[in-house]
Design a binder for these strands. Structure first.
Lengths: 203, 203
DNA sequence: TTACGAAGTTAACGGTGCTCACATTAGACG
DNA sequence: CGTCTAATGTGAGCACCGTTAACTTCGTAA
């Protein structure tokens, strides 16, 4: 009762809109996230949101931004400072599970063109990127950190999307976790499996 | 002049709709691909498409299906039967470049929930999957082919999306090609960069 | 030739994003 | 304590969307 007065204009729409939008997204997927529906749920006229968000895109971006934050927290919760390949795999599993648990949110975050001028978004994704880079530097100190961090992010990101799209079976969390872990294992030990003994990178 | 009669009902809508849809997608992105606009461009009433496609989703799926085919051809054109890590990298670059050249199409193909009951779609993606698996089996005969093929697809797919979303700089095709190649290189030689000499997978 | 069924049309419903002119009111300033 | 202003919410309205239903056209097979 301390939060909103509820008597005058509204209190703080913007926050209410953001919350309503998140709920609608969770309940009905991206299509359910219409500006009018959000306004309806916030108990306000269809034009009111435009006082706080330039357009639908801006509201969606705001939802995505909190999504990035939640993803970052989720990853950090797995291991504060992962430093081995197995811990890296654990983080990867968490990333994919996040995508599968909240598919609509994940698609909002990554599945559509992102307006570059949304600060929250770029900051948040930079955080994810840095976190991964840290892991890579600790686990593979002698590697090209930039390239490897990019590769790891892409690998994990791709696994998330392929599961999300039904390209890979995602019927149970266990099989997903297994597949993610073994994919990472396979790729990190691929050189050993190349035909030329030792499997050096040839050029 | 041999193709369409243009005198009677229409000739073959369905094909014309598919073509119009592809054009609109290319010109104005996903949002431009409305059933009404497609009908307009095909010179037909707004309700006509429903004789050939159950709903918008069905038409979009059809567009996606030809996208899968084109992607498959594009990859096959790089190397008919890639068998080394470098050739694999070449295929990866082609995959990412396809995504960047035709972003809207790529997003249609992968960026939204895919209805499982569209045969064309599942067949086409199976083809891509098999193609990659073949490469992996030839280049890394001693690896777990399933796991490694999955990992490679995910890696490449993730690289495509991260570039598409501006998470990675995609300003010029050259820097993209470089990044993709070195990411693959990095991940395939990661074990050698692990702290424990030899970099075996620990458990 | 006629009757049928596939393919196209028109009109309409409810929903959407967005804009503009207007009403209200919180809070700063005299 | 009163007043003015700028922010915030309203209502009506535009153009568009997907989808459906009832209707018309017309090639084709009996």
């Amino acid at each position: 009762m301390s939060t909103a007065k509820a008597t005058y204009h509204h209190g703080d729409l913007r926050a209410a809109l953001l919350r309503a939008a998140t709920e609608l997204l969770e309940e009905g997927g991206e299509t359910a996230l219409s500006l009018r529906a959000v306004a309806r749920r916030a108990g306000v006229s269809p034009a009111a949101p435009y006082r706080h968000y330039a357009d639908r895109e801006a509201l969606v971006s705001a939802v995505a931004a909190v999504g990035y934050q939640e993803l970052a927290e989720r990853l950090a919760a797995v291991h504060p400072e992962p430093a081995t390949a197995e811990q890296l795999a654990g983080v990867a599993v968490a990333y994919v599970q996040f995508a599968l648990e909240r598919p609509a949110l994940f698609r909002i975050m990554f599945g559509e063109p992102c307006d570059r001028d949304n600060d929250e978004r770029v900051v948040a994704t930079a955080a994810v990127s840095l976190y991964l880079r840290g892991i890579v530097e600790r686990a593979f100190p002698r590697a090209d950190a930039d390239a490897l961090a990019t590769a790891v992010w892409a690998l994990v990101h791709g696994l998330a999307f392929l599961h999300l799209d039904g390209k890979l079976d995602a019927s149970s969390p266990e099989v997903v976790a297994d597949r993610v872990a073994s994919a990472i294992h396979a790729v990190l030990t691929a050189t050993a499996a190349a035909p030329a003994a030792g499997g050096r990178w040839r050029r």
